[in-house]
Nucleic acid binder design. Structure first.
Length: 801
RNA sequence: GCCCGCGUGGCGGAACUGGCAGACGCGCAGGACUUAAAAUCCUGUUGUAGCAAUACAGUACCGGUUCGAUUCCGGUCGCGGGCACCA
């Protein structure tokens, strides 16, 4: 058969589509498999080869599962709200709706050309009002349960995008979208109380199958620490200063305290403070610094001593000074710390700069040089003296603090609440109303969806307000509670909102009465296998796990955790080894490859190119190598023979291949699975013939990777059904081994030769075969044989002296 | 600074649980076919020495455990990722 990939691919894509063979059936006696890929953001640039690699993994698994008799749900959709589209809308003065529709169509066409077996009847679009009705609905549920709150805060603000950014979107002090410098700006911010779910999100990790580094990253991001809250009295003031510490056992080493510049204590006791001017100056300077600058000046400790306020160490009654310094953050713990300069490097640096005492309480270091943070015997610490184990001394001091009513054990999380509003147009409207008498009132559920109004101008206002604020007919409304004139919230949700629950909507995409029907959820959930990029492991995955845990608590979904298993694909780098980017001009367009070499070649290559989880550079020659492989497959029909008498070599290779390809797919070792098929075709070429039955097994193994070609050959052989639904081949373990195998023979661990021995041969027999080998015999001659090692079917080693 | 991962031919990468290092592909070299080129096919391809059989060396580097180490342990160097004044 001549390999006319273009004709083959068009033909089978059309056939699969018309026969609807990839549509998932709700409810079935078959076992279910729900395979999920991260749905794309439909950018104007179209698909990237990275998309192909990301989807190909679950694609292969889904196709294999269908052949294994599973009822498979493998859906696709579009995460279409967001800034790039909005910015493009502003630039070209085109409505984001039009841009989004155009891009979605472009993406859909491209995805279809690659032949992915998505269920196209379940496509979701986060910007569809029928979809975001339920995004808003979940938000209102959270509001109802007290998980939405408003706060005035200094926020990360991007002057270029004119938008408030979360800490995650402004890492390194740069805007995640436009990379401008982020500044601090006071704003009213809507938060989702994700911190309330911190522990559940942490504990849930033990129930799921994620790679270790993914779990670790999520653990770090949640950042649980255990320690204690301790109350320090203030001299002459009837007020306690509470601190959080992970080392309460070093309390006797406390020589000063530090509070964050924003700490409320300052304003409350401003009249007592002798140096308020100096403190105000310092606070103003800090306010000017961005979070980024603050964290960059790690070395130089700055601060001001508060005159007129002194704290008292609750364990020994000593008076100690209190400072404000920006190395203490208001957002973590209580915004105040007890400083133990002998055993914390930051406190040490500060103490050195400000001439404060340093008291050693743990032996083992040299505190004249630096802080000692290791373990050791406790000294200068009253009832803690003599303790050598951190765990014991902490337990002891917490017991004592609790007894005296001055402290308790406590935990803290690094994770912050989720800033949930954006002053932008292209997002889900936040369904809240500000009423002068009732306060914040939710839009009634029955009025959802709250539809994003059509506007002509998409630019945010100069004051950073959402474009929606300019539309009076939208802003002005009646309070649903009291009927008075009221104003709508004009901010929209962040892009992470729509993607936090999309996998639920695939299960029941047209339901108008619920986000998804419970019976269908019970059938399909959880997602059995979710593949995506490392970049979404902390934000998207934690946000969506948070929403899912919440929905579970409300009885709206039936599983605690949404994703049973997660895998990560590595980046595809440009041919030059750098990350692909337009500016570097090293971008490979997947559609070019589909045109020139075919979708099957592209699919095989992205999975063959390297370790699935590793970043691998693109290589044009290697792509052609995959095409060559498929051409050889296409020509196999020419050597099909119906003469009986199987070739042992081919039988063994075939059964080994079934075993290897089957297990490799499960372990995302697609590169070696394909290598196995390449080896198999080398064996077939060497043997020079194969039976029709053997050919069919071969193309079944190939089908998940190169489905179009496999389908074509299958039909050429007279089949009326689809190979996509044919039965996955089984192997016979006894046929995966040769009668005789080659093993290495070592003398003192050095390989001397290989010998052919019977499979599972007896030790004596095998050793005598080895000894009679000429080279081995030569190496053993005249030596004293000390030990004979035979690992069955693996290695023979003679130890001689 | 802390946490994690990695380091194998000219290149991408294989190697099950400690058992023949370099599967498979690319590239390169030689050959066949061709008037010629491309495509295709065949052969070779870790390094050094040798016409060769073969010998020795070899998985970043140094050392250890072991009959045997790419794999396990200790140290050094290099690269990548994540977190970061988190008390």
């Amino acid at each position: 058969m001549r390999y006319n990939f273009k004709q083959i691919e068009q033909k089978w894509q059309k056939e699969w589509d018309e026969k609807k063979i990839f549509q998932a059936q709700d409810f079935s006696d078959k076992p279910k498999f729900y395979g999920l890929v991260e749905f794309p953001y439909p950018s104007g640039a179209g698909m990237h080869v990275g998309h192909i690699k990301a989807y190909s993994s679950i694609e292969v698994v889904a196709r294999k599962r269908r052949m294994q008799g599973y009822n498979v749900l493998f859906p696709i959709g579009f995460d279409a709200f967001g800034l790039p589209t909005e910015n493009y809308a502003v630039k070209t003065n085109t409505h984001p709706r039009i841009i989004t529709d155009t891009n979605i169509e472009k993406f859909s066409n491209q995805l279809r050309k690659v032949g992915f077996s998505f269920d196209w009847s379940r496509v979701v679009d986060t910007t569809d009002e029928k979809y975001y009705k339920w995004t808003q609905w979940i938000f209102l549920k959270m509001f109802e349960k007290g998980l939405v709150f408003r706060d005035n805060a200094l926020v990360n603000y991007c002057p270029h995008c004119k938008v408030v950014l979360s800490n995650e979107d402004s890492q390194g002090g740069k805007c995640d979208i436009c990379h401008s410098d982020v500044i601090q700006k006071p704003k009213t911010v809507w938060y989702l109380k994700i911190t309330e779910y911190a522990d559940k999100l942490l504990q849930g990790l033990s129930d799921v199958d994620y790679p270790d580094n993914v779990k670790q990253q999520q653990e770090n991001w949640i950042g649980k620490s255990t320690g204690a809250f301790v109350d320090f009295s203030l001299d002459g003031i009837d007020e306690k200063l509470q601190i959080y510490t992970t080392r309460p056992d070093t309390l006797f080493g406390v020589t000063f305290m530090v509070i964050a510049p924003e700490h409320p204590l300052i304003d409350k006791y401003a009249d007592r403070i002798g140096n308020m001017d100096a403190i105000e100056n310092y606070r103003n300077e800090c306010a000017k610094k961005t979070e980024f600058e603050r964290t960059q000046l790690v070395k130089d400790k700055t601060g001001v001593k508060i005159e007129g306020i002194e704290a008292i160490n609750p364990l020994n009654g000593k008076k100690i000074p209190v400072f404000i310094a920006d190395y203490v953050m208001m957002g973590y713990g209580t915004g105040a710390i007890m400083a133990v300069p002998a055993h914390d490097q930051r406190d040490y640096d500060f103490a050195k700069a400000f001439g404060v005492d340093i008291i050693e309480v743990i032996k083992g270091g040299d505190i004249t040089k630096e802080a000692y943070t290791g373990d050791g015997e406790m000294v200068n610490s009253d009832f803690l003296n003599g303790f050598t184990n951190k765990k014991d001394s902490i337990a002891k001091v917490i017991e004592e603090l609790t007894k005296r009513g001055i402290g308790t054990a406590g935990v803290q999380f690094k994770m912050k609440d989720w800033a949930f509003n954006r002053q932008r147009y292209w997002g889900e409207p936040i369904p809240l109303i500000h009423c002068p008498s009732c306060g914040v009132v939710p839009v009634p559920y029955e009025e959802l969806p709250l539809i994003l109004p059509n506007v002509e101008q998409f630019e945010p206002g100069e004051d950073g307000q959402s474009p929606l604020a300019k539309i009076e007919s939208y802003v002005n409304c009646k309070c649903p509670k009291c009927g008075a004139d009221a104003k709508r919230e004009t901010d929209t949700m962040p892009q992470w909102a729509g993607s936090s629950w999309y996998f639920l909507r695939y299960i029941d995409p047209n339901n108008d009465n619920a986000l998804a029907d419970m019976e269908k959820l019970k059938y399909w959930m959880p997602v059995d296998w979710y593949n995506g990029g490392m970049e979404h492991v902390t934000r998207h995955m934690i946000y969506s796990r948070f929403w899912h845990h919440f929905l579970y608590d409300q009885g709206i979904v039936n599983t605690k955790e949404p994703y049973a298993k997660r895998t990560i694909q590595g980046l595809i780098l440009g041919p030059d080894g750098d990350k692909m980017s337009k500016s570097k001009g090293n971008v490979v367009d997947p559609l070019d490859i589909v045109e020139e070499l075919g979708a099957d070649t592209l699919r095989v290559y992205v999975l063959f190119m390297g370790d699935y989880g590793a970043a691998t550079p693109w290589n044009d020659s290697s792509v052609r190598g995959c095409k060559r492989f498929l051409e050889r497959v296409a020509s196999l029909e020419e050597i099909v023979t119906e003469e009986k008498g199987e070739t042992k070599e081919l039988t063994v290779a075939l059964h080994k291949a079934i075993k290897k390809v089957s297990s490799d797919i499960e372990e995302t070792k697609f590169n070696t699975a394909i290598a196995t098929l390449m080896s198999l075709i080398n064996t077939i070429t060497k043997v020079g013939k194969l039976t029709g039955e053997e050919l069919e097994i071969f193309i079944k193994l190939l089908a998940p990777f190169a489905p179009h070609l496999a389908e074509e050959i299958w039909h050429n052989r007279g089949h009326e059904d689809f190979i996509a639904l044919a039965q996955w081949p089984a192997y016979d373990e006894s046929k995966t081994v040769e009668d005789n195998i080659e093993v290495g023979v070592q003398v003192n661990g050095k390989l001397k030769n290989t010998v052919s021995i019977p499979f599972n041969g007896e030790k004596d027999e095998v050793l005598s075969i080895a000894k009679s080998d000429e080279k081995v015999a030569a190496a053993l001659a005249g030596k004293n044989l000390v030990k004979e090692i035979y690992v069955p079917n693996k290695i023979i080693n003679f130890v001689v002296k």
